[in-house]
């Protein structure tokens, strides 16, 4: 049995490597996401007017909402490209279960698209005049929450495979699923603001991430099977 697991993990890593390589060749996607995020962060204070207190109230939520909106265009392409060029058919002949492959897709998407956003999030926080003591908690909550968001996005992306107008459908379908992540993610920092313990919200956020980590690969694999079976 041991050799089975070693080959599983090596194939898993092979999938992640390929995804990172393909995405590193089209860096414009990544640049556009970070750019879009920066624009949201810049536009918001301009819209709010010159009162600092107002900014302090919304800064936390703006980063989270900005993050969810900024990654939407990239989510639809997450599986679409591989579906169109036939790679998903090839993946279906991989010796590891499709569920494991889907997990690798979710993880590699998180590594490629969301890690850069997580790294840049302290800068956004400073731009929005967030308290310095909040910033480490923001990074922790976004790190966990964004993994859940990518996994939900993966399932959504699998759902619209082969659908016409999928790009319009996708946000409507998956943003409602992301609301719990948003609520508990924002909750972590709101608790810090009122000097309460952030752990309640943080643990619920981690629990949700773990739930999606378990169910999303199964849902996505099922949907991909339907898409390639048509």
């Amino acid at each position: 049995m041991n050799s089975v697991y070693t080959s599983w993990s090596s194939i898993f890593i092979a999938h992640v490597k390929r995804d990172i390589l393909t995405n590193s060749r089209s860096l414009i996607d990544l640049i556009s996401i970070v750019g879009f995020m920066i624009l949201i962060i810049i536009l918001f204070p301009l819209g709010l007017g010159p009162i600092q207190e107002k900014l302090n109230i919304v800064s936390n939520a703006v980063i989270w909402v900005g993050l969810i909106l900024a990654i939407m265009p990239s989510l639809e392409k997450l599986l679409q490209k591989d579906f169109e060029n036939g790679w998903l058919d090839q993946i279906a002949t991989s010796p590891i279960p499709l569920e494991v492959v889907m997990l690798s897709k979710g993880i590699s998407y998180w590594l490629i698209i969301l890690i850069p956003l997580i790294i840049t999030s302290p800068i956004f926080a400073i731009l929005l005049d967030m308290d310095l003591k909040n910033i480490p908690w923001l990074v922790i909550s976004i790190s966990s929450g964004s993994l859940a968001i990518s996994l939900i996005g993966l399932s959504g992306s699998a759902l619209i495979l082969g659908a016409r107008r999928g790009n319009i459908l996708l946000p409507i379908l998956i943003i409602p699923l992301m609301t719990p992540i948003l609520i508990f993610g924002v909750g972590v920092n709101e608790a810090i603001k009122i000097n309460a313990s952030p752990y309640g919200n943080l643990f619920l956020l981690l629990a949700l991430t773990l739930v999606y980590l378990v169910i999303s690969p199964f849902i996505s694999a099922l949907l991909v099977r339907i898409a390639i079976g048509r």
Partner: peptide, 13 residues
């Protein structure tokens, strides 16, 4: 080995 008219090649590689 399965091969159809969609070749399964990524154009970025």
């Amino acid at each position: 080995i399965f091969l159809d008219t969609k070749n399964g090649l990524s154009k970025d590689l």
